[in-house]
C-alpha cells in the first residue's frame, strides 16, 4: 500500500462557539494516517477524540491548521465537494450502528452507492457481495430489527466498505455489543484492514481493544499526548 498518506493533519484546531463563548475542543493536532494503518484513538471523555474523528472523516472543518484528506485540502472544499470526498474516501462505523429502519440489509449497504450515482442493479450486486464478505450473505433481505446487534454492526461495516474507501473510521464499534460479539466484530475489522488495505482508525475506551492496534494515539484536553508511531512503532 504505497499510495502515500490517507490523511494528514497539520496543527489542526477546532473551536466551538457556545453562547458567544469560544470553547476549544482541539488545540493544534498534527498527525498522519498512512494507507493501511491500524490506529486506536484513546482518551477520556472530553479529550477531543470525537472531534478529531469528525474532522478526519470530513464531517466537520477545522477552525485552524491544515487538514488534507485523500490529497484534498478540506478547508477549501464546498459542502457538496466535502460530501463527495466522504463518499469516495471514508467509511464510517458508529457505536449505535445507524442503520435505516424498515430498510433491508442489502439496501442499507447500498446507500452510499446511491449518492455515488451507481445504478440500482449494480448497487444491489455490490452490496450483496460486500454482505457476503462480512458473513451475512444469508441475511440480505432482513431488516435491522430482524438482526442481532452483532449482525447489525456487520451490516454497518459492509456499508462503510462498499464504496472501497481508503480510511475506515470506527467510533466505539463494539461499545453496544457484548464481549463475545464485540470480539468477533473487532476480528472482522482487523481482517478487512489486512485484506483490503483500508486504514482503520478506531475510537475506543477499551484498553484491551486499543492494545490490539498497531498504533495508539492518546489524547487529553484537545492535544495528542502520546503517539506510538512517534515512539518508533508502526506508521509513517
Amino acid at each position: 500500500m504505497s499510495r502515500g498518506p490517507a490523511i494528514e493533519a497539520f496543527d489542526v484546531s477546532r473551536t466551538y462557539e457556545l453562547d458567544g463563548v469560544s470553547v476549544p475542543a482541539l488545540r493544534g493536532v498534527s498527525l498522519t494516517v498512512g494507507a493501511g494503518d491500524y490506529v486506536a484513538l484513546i482518551g477520556p471523555s472530553g479529550s477531543g477524540k470525537s472531534t478529531l474523528m469528525h474532522l478526519l472523516g470530513g464531517l466537520d472543518r477545522p477552525s485552524g491548521g491544515r487538514l488534507v484528506i485523500g490529497g484534498r485540502e478540506v478547508g477549501s472544499l464546498s459542502a457538496p465537494e466535502l460530501a463527495r470526498l466522504r463518499n469516495e474516501t471514508i467509511g464510517f462505523v458508529f457505536q449505535a450502528f445507524h442503520l435505516l429502519p424498515r430498510t433491508s440489509a442489502v439496501d442499507n449497504v447500498a446507500l452510499p452507492l446511491v449518492y455515488r450515482g451507481v445504478g440500482a442493479r449494480q448497487r444491489r450486486e455490490r452490496a450483496a457481495a460486500m454482505l457476503g464478505r462480512v458473513g451475512l450473505g444469508h441475511r440480505l433481505h432482513h431488516r435491522p430489527n430482524q438482526l442481532s446487534g452483532g449482525e447489525q454492526q456487520r451490516v454497518a461495516i459492509a456499508r462503510a466498505l462498499v464504496t472501497d474507501p481508503t480510511v475506515l473510521l470506527a467510533d466505539e464499534p463494539t461499545g453496544n455489543l457484548d464481549s463475545t460479539t464485540g470480539a468477533a466484530v473487532l476480528e472482522l475489522l482487523e481482517r478487512l484492514n489486512v485484506e483490503s488495505g483500508v486504514a482503520l482508525v478506531m475510537v475506543t475506551h477499551d484498553a484491551e481493544v486499543a492494545a490490539r492496534a498497531r498504533r495508539r494515539i492518546a489524547m487529553r484536553d484537545g492535544v495528542v499526548v502520546a503517539d506510538s508511531a512517534a515512539d518508533g512503532g508502526a506508521g509513517t
Partner: peptide, 16 residues
C-alpha cells in the same frame, strides 16, 4: 435527524 446525519456521512450532498 439521525437518518439525515447518516446520509450526509455516507456522501449525500445538502441538495440530495
Amino acid at each position: 435527524t439521525r437518518e439525515i446525519g447518516l446520509r450526509k456521512a455516507v456522501g449525500a450532498r445538502p441538495r440530495d
